[in-house]
């Protein structure tokens, strides 16, 4: 039974992941690509590994060794460079950018779906077709909308505070928002609702880490368009995830 429940979450997550990839390629990904054109104009940020060969300082040795290894290796360069040094990445298994996005969406969708199922199991409140949209909307609020109040979705090339600080604030906000939504929505006690609101507000009263210098080579209009498109796309994905989860639960788990 446990396996079946997890399997249902897996299937819902994969379906939502495919949907998300299609939804993202409609608006969000084109804006990212557009922003990268501006990002590239900024001088001396990150030199792509492809422009090697101008000077061979000792710092660049790992890349050269990596290239030689890659030439003899059946493994794709992206894979061979894993963990060698920080600046170099490349898409896993030499996939195209789109396949990378699809894979990441499948993984993320499955992750979100499992989180939703896990919470549903722990609080004993099943996801059904009827309440699936609300489950999805709450997931979106907790993981995207509320953290975005402090850390809006950023385009490549946008200024940002220290990554570690932002990730800690983000994770804390997601956890507090999730707990706050549970207290606010599912607990009848008035005290719980007040505590829920406090949990929702707390990370924003504390404040998200902000960059010292907010100047950016990427046009602001693009950033505004992106933030709205990203949040809207995420909401659509979560609603699909909630609906599909509810449908699968109703159809295959209730009367199996």
């Amino acid at each position: 039974m446990i396996v079946k429940t997890l399997l249902a979450a897996l299937v819902a997550g994969l379906i939502a992941g495919v949907f998300t990839t299609v939804a993202q390629s409609a608006r969000v990904v084109p804006i990212i690509l557009h922003a990268e054109e501006y990002e590239a104009k900024e001088p001396a940020t990150e030199q792509p590994a492809a422009t090697e060969g101008q000077q061979h300082s000792s710092l660049e040795q790992p890349a050269t060794i990596g290239d030689i290894l890659a030439a003899f290796s059946p493994i794709t360069p992206a894979y061979a460079h894993e963990g060698e040094h920080e600046d170099e990445g490349g898409i896993m298994f030499g996939m195209s950018r789109f396949s990378g996005t699809l894979l990441a969406n499948l993984v993320t969708g499955t992750g979100f779906s499992l989180l939703l199922t896990g919470i549903s199991l722990l609080i004993g409140y099943p996801i059904t077709l009827r309440n699936g949209v609300l489950w999805g909307a709450c997931g979106w609020l907790a993981i995207h909308m509320l953290p975005a109040v402090g850390l809006p979705p950023e385009l490549p090339g946008f200024p940002a505070a220290d990554l570690h600080d932002r990730q800690i604030w983000w994770v804390a906000t997601v956890l507090l928002s999730g707990a706050g939504l549970y207290l606010l929505v599912l607990r009848p006690e008035i005290l719980a609702k007040i505590a829920g609101l406090a949990a929702l507000a707390a990370p924003h009263i504390y404040g998200a880490p902000q960059p010292a210098d907010i100047s950016s080579p990427v046009p602001a209009v693009l950033g505004a368009e992106f933030a709205v498109a990203a949040l809207a796309t995420a909401l659509a994905s979560w609603i699909v995830l909630g609906l599909v989860s509810g449908y699968i639960n109703d159809r295959f788990l209730k009367s199996a």
């Binding site: 993202q24 990212i32 460079h81 990445g89 490349g90 499992l114 979705p153 950023e154 990554l163």
Partner: peptide, 29 residues
């Protein structure tokens, strides 16, 4: 399992994971 997957795709500090999931990370904020 869910946190592990979301962490891997969304937050992990590996260059390969980052580049593969780049557009997704930006899209999801």
């Amino acid at each position: 399992i869910g946190s592990f997957l979301v962490f891997g795709a969304g937050l992990a500090n590996s260059a390969v994971l980052h580049d593969t999931a780049h557009d997704v990370r930006h899209s999801y904020g």
